[in-house]
């Protein structure tokens, strides 16, 4: 049963997977409660453009993905506040714009082998030792920032107006959440895939919220669901040879369905 851990690549996949399973819903809950769920999806599409740049130039895909998602996060924040554009349309523009850019870049990089489907949907065999170090280190940084800022992030998520009146730097805190979301998206590409990371940030959170708990308990439960999805998803995808991202997200979907059914009124 546990010969799975004899393989170095599986150990790496589990290491990276656990790190992502913890940070995705931790940031996701702040996006979900503010009705920004689609930001994670938009950033996921933006990360594709970063991966395409890596394919062209031969650099580390996680790093280039992170640079593009963080830049896009800044762009989205600026457009949402400084111009008179509806939040949703800003997201739509970034989402399709970056998809268009990636399609061209991937076209140019033809010949330099990139497994496009492993980028889109995740592949546990592609996690290099360097990737694991990078993912785990940055995941720890993200977790520490969230822990330190938790009271302030909560206050701003609940009520921006009053937070501002009482002297919280609302715009800065919003930008911090966006940057952390952008970082998590890039970190998750290897395991969950660029197109499915949004689901891991949103689904465990929405599943946990069905249980009508306090904000803090909801966050713990969301992390538990997320860990369950990633760990069982990795096992299943290994034994049945399935795409890891798809398997993980389907398990997350199951936790959501289960939560929904159990909490029917």
């Amino acid at each position: 049963m546990f010969e799975i851990f004899q393989f170095d690549f599986m150990q790496r996949a589990f290491g990276a997977g656990i790190a992502i399973a913890i940070i995705a819903p931790t940031i996701g809950i702040f996006l979900v409660v503010r009705r920004f769920s689609l930001i994670s999806d938009t950033l996921a599409h933006v990360s594709l453009a970063g991966v395409a740049v890596a394919a062209l130039t031969g650099t580390n895909a996680i790093l280039t993905a992170m640079i593009t998602t963080v830049l896009a996060a800044f762009g989205i924040e600026r457009l949402r506040f400084s111009r008179n554009i509806f939040g949703e349309s800003v997201l739509a523009i970034f989402l399709s714009g970056s998809l268009a850019l990636s399609s061209i870049l991937f076209g140019l990089s033809r010949g330099r082998a990139v497994g496009l489907s492993s980028i889109l949907f995740g592949s546990i065999t592609t996690v290099s030792p360097g990737d694991v170090r990078l993912i785990v280190t940055l995941a720890i940084i993200v977790t520490v920032i969230i822990l330190a800022l938790y009271p302030k992030l909560f206050a701003v998520a609940f009520d921006e107006e009053v937070a501002q009146v009482n002297g919280l730097p609302v715009q800065l805190l919003n930008t911090v959440i966006m940057i952390l979301a952008a970082m998590s998206v890039a970190l998750a590409i290897r395991i969950v895939g660029a197109l499915l990371i949004g689901a891991l940030m949103v689904m465990p959170v929405v599943a946990a919220l069905q249980w009508k708990l306090s904000f803090q308990k909801s966050l713990w439960l969301a992390i538990a669901f997320s860990l369950l999805a990633v760990l069982s998803g990795l096992f299943i995808s290994y034994y049945w040879d399935l795409a890891s991202g798809g398997t993980i997200v389907l398990v997350a979907l199951l936790t959501f369905t289960f939560s929904l059914v159990m909490n029917r009124r």
Partner: peptide, 12 residues
């Protein structure tokens, strides 16, 4: 908003 009364009051 998914939070308890105590969480919201404390957030002040």
């Amino acid at each position: 908003f998914p939070a308890t009364v105590a969480e919201v009051v404390l957030s002040g």
